[in-house]
Simulated assay, not measured.
Amino acid sequence: MNGFLSINRFVAVLVKEFLQMRRDRMTFAMMIALPIVQLLLFGYAINSDPRHMPTLIEMNDTGPVSRAMVSALSNSTYFDIQRPIAGASAAEKAFRHGDATFVVTIPPNFERDVIRGDRPKILIEADASDPTATGGAVAALSGIVSSAIGQALPGAVADLAAGPDPFGVIVHRHYNPAGITTYNIVPGLLAIILSMTMIMVTAIAIVRERERGTLETLIATPVRPAEVMAGKILPYVLVGFVQTAVFFIVARLLFNVPFDGGLGGFIIGLNLFIVVNLALGFLFSTVARNQMQAMQMSFFFIMPSILLSGFLFPFAGMPGWAQTLGTAIPATHFIRIIRKVMLKGATLPDLWPDMVALTAIMAVVTAVALFRYRQTLD
């Protein structure tokens, strides 16, 4: 057929494309894997109404009414009662370290004051640096209090059922009392920006050198793999510093995001995070065959960094397996560091757990990247 459309030519091109797709197995695998990963993450891991938020209790009264209130909080599924604490300093420390989303304080002589009709107050303190994590639980408090009253009234205080609530609840939101979403999103955005740029730029730059043949020239020199890796990474560390400086200027001038913590701890965490992302980019470059694959691998890693790090959705509200995966992502720990520093006034001792995690991830990624690079040399 020699007209405008030839079935033979069409079939030839079609077969050629399928053969090319079969040869580029990594791209084909990502085309299949990416929708599956998205489906699993959005279907199982993402929760816009988080439950089982870590909650600490300061029990200054252990009577039946107090126990009924704690039981009602636990039964609501919003609060995961973990351990008792004592004193306001312990609550503040738990918030700074990220060990608790809520702290419930039941005052002394609580049951006695309920029976007398003095309407005592229960204090519920919330880490409002992430308004999404606390909004649903705070909104459900009125129903939880009614449930606690229903559990406690059959007994010595049953005659109070006809009157007003025998006790009240005071909610104190720490770090972001106005619930401004920008204060939560903007600090975390720095982690996502650095991840996206550092990983992708490093991976593409090294793969481009391989495609142009300049990497083979470098391999022919006496330069060792560790020296090549350090030389490729360090220039982009300076680029990361420039990005961070611009970010803070814009965050302060346009969004008025505070910076209440210590600068020293933040700089250490920033260096660790930049280096681990550059090492990831170096690792991806040893796997990718071309620049397109390097870009695809970078995007494939960025997606779980956005969804499982606590950037958009509360980390504590995700299922256990998703939290385990999120703990292995560098952005998770840097987001905690930057939010602690900017919003909670955290200092270096408060940041150690996440810095240790970043150091461990960096050591593993660097070792694997050097191993893969040696294989490339061979």
Rank of each mutant, 00 (worst) to 15 (best):
S76H: 12
T55K: 14
S195Y: 12
G136S: 15
G213N: 10
G143L: 02
A72N: 03
N176P: 14
A288F: 10
M30L: 15
L189C: 10
Q82N: 13
I306N: 08
D113P: 07
M21C: 05
T55N: 06
F248W: 13
Q243Y: 07
V13G: 06
A139T: 07
P349R: 15
R374M: 00
D24G: 11
F299Q: 07
G150T: 13
L73M: 09
V228A: 09
A91Q: 10
V239C: 11
L283S: 05
G310N: 07
A331I: 00
I7V: 13
F282R: 03
F300N: 01
I193H: 08
G117Y: 11
G281C: 08
L358Y: 04
M292P: 04
D378Y: 12
T244P: 14
L41I: 06
G326P: 12
L278N: 13
F315H: 13
R96S: 09
L272W: 09
M292K: 15
Q375R: 15
V104I: 06
Q151F: 09
A68I: 00
I268L: 11
F334D: 06
F284G: 03
A156D: 05
I180N: 15
A245L: 12
T202H: 03
P54Q: 09
A367R: 14
W321A: 03
V207A: 02
Y373E: 02
A360V: 13
V275G: 01
V341F: 10
V341E: 00
I219Y: 12
G345N: 01
R23V: 03
D378V: 07
F18D: 02
L56S: 05
D350M: 10
G269I: 04
D130P: 05
A148S: 13
M196H: 09
F282D: 04
V364H: 02
L312Q: 05
V242T: 15
R96P: 04
I329N: 13
R96K: 15
Y44W: 15
T62I: 11
F18G: 04
I249G: 15
P120M: 06
G117D: 05
